[in-house]
């Protein structure tokens, strides 16, 4: 797809171009919402709100960044708004930081080789999802964007409107927190 051309056509009101853009990004935006909130209904809301905003505001996109950076920014903002508005009804979202800033002395027990089939095991998968949702939003968003969606440090910084060094720090803290959680899961599952 020649994205610049499609975006330009969409900016001139071409419905087909809109449809191409929606189709190109719908899975990623839905996935982003699902990982951010952990709820299918919220992911669907974020998906719809993001593309409605895209339709209404596409003429504000000036091409100073990649189109998906602009779109992700809308999606992340919608996701964070959703989390804030429902803060009381989420059981897993912490309003304070968990132990993400602590440094832990590393245990020398090396993890066993996982059979990656274990990951499709529903219970294991649920535990991974829950661990991710225990991360405060500011760390979770960086982990989702950098490690799951593959955006670069500079793109992530731009999407979240934070500095690149802040992005790196948040990513390391998120990874470290999830590693600790995974350590617990591995022990619980008797893999160690």
């Amino acid at each position: 797809m020649d994205e610049k051309k499609v975006v330009a056509q969409a900016q001139q009101g071409d419905r087909n171009a809109f449809a191409i853009l929606v189709n190109e990004y719908k899975d990623r935006i839905y996935h982003l919402g699902l990982r951010l909130t952990g709820k299918e209904q919220d992911a669907e809301d974020i998906l719809q709100e993001t593309f409605i905003a895209m339709l209404q505001n596409i003429n504000k996109f000036k091409g100073n960044s990649a189109f998906y950076t602009w779109l992700y920014r809308i999606a992340v903002n919608n996701g964070l708004k959703k989390l804030k508005s429902k803060a009381n009804s989420y059981t897993h979202v912490s309003l304070h930081d968990p132990n993400v800033e602590q440094t832990h002395s590393e245990h020398l027990n090396v993890w066993p080789e996982f059979d990656f089939k274990d990951i499709s095991n529903k219970k294991f998968r649920k535990e991974l999802d829950e661990a991710l949702l225990e991360l405060p939003e500011k760390y979770r968003t960086v982990f989702i964007l950098r490690d799951l969606h593959g955006t670069s440090t500079s793109e992530t910084a731009r999407i979240l409107d934070i500095s690149e060094s802040n992005t790196k720090v948040r990513l390391m803290r998120a990874r470290n927190f999830l590693k600790e959680k995974l350590e617990d899961i591995v022990k619980l599952e008797g893999l160690l």
């Binding site: 839905y30 090396v110 990951i119 991710l132 590693k179």
Partner: peptide, 21 residues
């Protein structure tokens, strides 16, 4: 050991993540 675990944590999440459509 720390590096290995971080790397595998990210790999596990990436692998688990491909399942949603």
């Amino acid at each position: 050991v720390f590096v290995d675990k971080i790397k595998r944590t990210v790999a596990i999440y990436k692998t688990a993540d491909g399942c949603d459509e």
